[in-house]
Amino acid sequence: MTIEDLHKSFGDNEVLKGISMRVEPGEVVCLIGASGSGKSTLLRCVNRLEEPNAGQITVGQHTATHPDVNLDAMRREIGMVFQQFNLFPHLSVLDNCTITPRKVLRASKAQAESDAMEQLEKVGLKHLSERRPDQLSGGQQQRVAIARALTMKPSLMLFDEPTSALDPETVGDVLAIMRQLAQAGMTMIVVTHEMGFAREVADRVVFMDQGVVVEEGSAAQVIGAPEQPRTQDFLRRVLNPLSEQ
């Protein structure tokens, strides 16, 4: 996946001021930075949930920014996990995972259900397949959301602050699934505030501030020994929230 000189504004507010980056197949990239730095917007531009103002994005053989791109076909190859899970509340866990394969890919019910059960087993929730989303904890819902995205067999997964809305005790389960996914060779772009996860799992860490990439490199470089003052400042505040006061 490549991004070239991406610009995005909301009204007069320029959120992305020329971002370029490249993600190789199998690579795990963590986007870090303060709220409002443009990380989520960047992620949402990749599958065109946000319309970029300028620049070019290609995902596999799809040019996301081309006017004639088949958006639905492209999005089927890109899984996305949201901060608020966004499971479909009127459908059971299993139906959440089978509805798109069945309605969009025209998979048979039996095929879709066996695929879905396989994915649910991977996230450890096979036994809850008949439940409704509102009967699950936040962490369980997010794991279902990951399974749901995987049933479309994507080649790239986008995670938009997947653990920010979770109770602290359920964060670990979700991160463990993501680590497992990374180890299985999935290409992943993860917007996160979990520095421990970034340090352990990310092949590359990108620090963004005010719509530009300030610093990027291995986790050890960017988180362990940041060069830019803005990165140092951000990390100091994230890692030691009380030290500034």
Binding site: R75, M80, L87, F88, V104, A145
Partner: peptide
């Protein structure tokens, strides 16, 4: 958004 991101028209 979730439905569109999954590839639903």
């Amino acid at each position: 958004e979730a439905a569109r991101a999954l590839g639903m028209p």
